[in-house]
């Protein structure tokens, strides 16, 4: 700091030569300070909100408990669905294979095939209905039994047909042999 700067700083009082209008300015300041700031009531302090929050918490706990203890019936449904899925896969494969055998059989006329397949279509429609009932969670065990029965009927039908065909084939082939 040079002498010039030091001289100014040492005589700073000279630069304080204005007088504020204290009364007027304080009146304005006090007026602004007295303006009531918007009262902020924290939500958690309101009794109504506390009650509402308690109810929500209670409902939440009840829901969780209810789901835990009474939601169990859903588990068998999932189990049955899984059971149905397994049965479905097993029988569907079997039926498809046997239907294919019937369709490929040269000994059956087109009319016979059509008649046979129409039975299968009816059983298919019945099966679809049973599956819907299963989804609606009616009596699962009974519906499942009905589905299995449906598949058995189809398979039985196919097996009978194939057996008849084989028997006639054997008769034809064995005509030259005398046991």
């Amino acid at each position: 700091m040079d002498q010039f700067e030091k001289h100014i700083r040492d005589n700073k009082a000279v630069f304080v030569d204005h007088k504020a209008d204290r009364a007027k300015m304080w009146a304005n300041i006090a007026a602004q300070l007295n303006e009531n700031p918007p009262k902020v009531v924290p939500l958690w302090k309101s009794p109504m909100v506390r009650i509402a929050a308690s109810i929500v918490i209670l409902l939440g706990i009840t829901g969780i408990v209810g789901f835990t203890f009474f939601g169990n019936p859903n588990t068998p449904t999932h189990y049955v669905s899984k059971e149905l899925q397994d049965i479905d896969m097993h029988y569907k494969g079997l039926v498809t294979y046997q239907v294919q055998l019937v369709q490929n059989n040269n000994q059956l006329t087109a009319a016979d095939k059509e008649e046979f397949l129409s039975f299968m279509v009816e059983l298919d429609a019945e099966y679809e209905q049973l599956k819907l009932e299963m989804r609606n969670n009616l009596d699962n065990e009974q519906v499942l039994a009905a589905i299995v029965s449906n598949y058995r009927k189809r398979i039985e039908l196919i097996e009978n047909l194939l057996q008849q065909l084989n028997e006639s084939k054997i008769k034809e082939e064995d005509y030259g042999y005398t046991l």
């Binding site: 630069f15 204005h18 007088k19 504020a20 007027k24 300015m25 304080w26 300041i29 602004q32």
Partner: peptide, 23 residues
Amino acid sequence: VDAMYNVSMRFLGIKEDAEDIVQ
């Protein structure tokens, strides 16, 4: 208040402006 008013006056040079700023 006087010190602050003088500070503001040195910057602004206008009485009314300085009063507003100090308030």
